[in-house]
Design a protein around this nucleic acid. Structure first.
Length: 401
DNA sequence: TAAGTAAGCGAGACCGCTGA
DNA sequence: TCAGCGGTCTCGCTTACTTA
């Protein structure tokens, strides 16, 4: 997702930004509903039978480009010293995620990895199909006759400025979610195929001095099985994750993904833009590196200057395979239809009439599940942060004046 | 045969023009 | 100034082709 001055907000349609601050939360809510529709089924075109299919919640991380300050806790919940400097850090400390030694941190490698993250994901999914074919003892070209790989993926910025990919990967039948998955396509097969694919994919590019640079996923590959229970328990006895808990995670990633704290809020047009950015030194260095690399002919096809404000990440915040779930367009069409129906209903009233509603019924209170609570909490947090930031900026302006 | 690459297509984002 | 519209661009998914 990017923000461009003068563009049209995809949520409200007004000419502000691609997702204006007012609508960022609605965008996040759409993303949340889109992922959850493919997760729990039951939505238009997505049968409830998806809950019977092999599904895994996968987290793919970026590799290390240098030691960064971090917060660690022991299994007993006790604080542990930072692996970078040996000191104890508070989780809210802005130093978290920043390099221990900015002079030796591989900013070029980090930007190039980020710029290739989408391509790395494409290679991963392709490799995953091949691993599935290998497991089934069939040819790669025959995989499509037996099953379809469906997934929804959310990109989440870490504090070090690199993205994580969180994906719900599902094995459907060849015709999609309504089609039964073949018997050999089990959770174990999916698990093994994901681990093999994640460990083997690489993309080779070159540094500005011509030195080869192999780009791959980080060592931390987390795979959790999705169980169809709606119990609010995060983890099952076998390490699996419930749909309800996973929907909560997705809600958190969706609202975080549309936030602006990790990157600049609009494309970089000039060096002066970078100089006046209200971001951390670490993120400014990443943006500067992307801007500088973007001037080199070797990286012309990466469009790094265009994506410098996103720390070099060119992909979309949320993507999905074609049959995974509903689309943003369908969600927005449904919203437009609902609004139209509401307006029409209202239009039947005489403007001079006074509508009196005197029959109220108690329907319930609060949110109905953990995911909705998570989404609401994340939105509330962002509103508070936005308010605090505005307050701080107002104070700065007042002092400057 | 496995692995890498390219092409076609769809979805979404961006941008400029026009008119109210 | 803003909304609407349409063309263009970018990225991801899928499939087919090429190469070792």
């Amino acid at each position: 997702m990017s923000h461009a001055e003068g563009a049209v907000c995809v949520a409200c349609g007004n000419r502000r930004e691609s997702v204006c601050p007012t609508c960022a939360d609605r965008y996040a809510a759409d993303a949340f509903h889109l992922i959850r529709a493919g997760l729990a089924g039951g939505s238009k075109g997505i049968p409830t039978s998806v809950t019977d299919k092999p599904r895994a919640f996968v987290t793919l991380t970026a590799p290390s480009f240098g030691a960064v300050h971090n917060v660690r806790t022991s299994r007993r919940g006790r604080s542990m010293p930072c692996t970078g400097c040996g000191q104890y850090h508070h989780p809210a400390n802005p130093i978290i995620g920043t390099p221990v030694d900015p002079h030796t941190y591989d900013y070029v490698g980090a930007v190039l990895w980020q710029a290739h993250a989408g391509q790395l994901w494409a290679r991963f999914t392709q490799r995953l199909r091949r691993e599935l074919a290998k497991a089934a003892g069939i040819r790669v070209r025959e995989v499509g006759e037996y099953l379809r790989l469906s997934y929804g993926k959310v990109a989440e910025y870490q504090r070090r400025g690199l993205v994580h990919f969180h994906a719900v990967i599902r094995l459907d039948g060849p015709d999609g979610p309504a089609d039964p998955t073949p018997g050999w396509a089990t959770l174990d097969v999916l698990d093994a195929a994901i681990r093999a694919a994640a460990a083997s994919v690489t993309i080779t590019t070159h540094r500005p001095d011509g030195q080869a640079l192999d780009l791959a996923w980080g060592e931390q590959v987390d795979i959790r099985r999705v169980n169809p229970t709606t119990v609010q328990r995060v983890e099952g006895p076998d390490g699996s994750i419930s749909e309800a808990a996973l929907a909560g995670y997705v809600a958190k990633y969706a609202t975080k993904g549309t936030g602006k704290s990790e990157a600049a809020d609009r494309p970089i047009r000039s060096q002066e833009d970078i100089d006046y950015l209200d971001v951390s030194d670490h993120h400014r260095r990443i943006i500067q590196t992307a801007w500088d690399l973007g001037s080199l002919d070797n990286y012309a096809d990466l469009n790094l200057r265009r994506w410098a404000h996103m720390l070099g990440f060119r992909g979309h915040f949320l993507t999905k395979s074609r049959r995974y779930s509903v689309t943003f367009g369908q969600l927005r069409a449904a919203r437009r239809t609902w609004r139209l129906a509401t307006n029409l209903a209202a239009a039947e009233l005489d403007p001079n009439d006074v509508l009196v509603i005197n029959d109220w019924r108690f329907d319930g209170v609060g949110y109905t599940n953990e995911a909705e609570r998570e989404l609401a909490a994340a939105i509330a947090t962002r509103i508070r942060q936005h308010r605090a930031l505005k307050h701080r900026k107002d104070n700065d302006h007042a002092q400057a004046a």
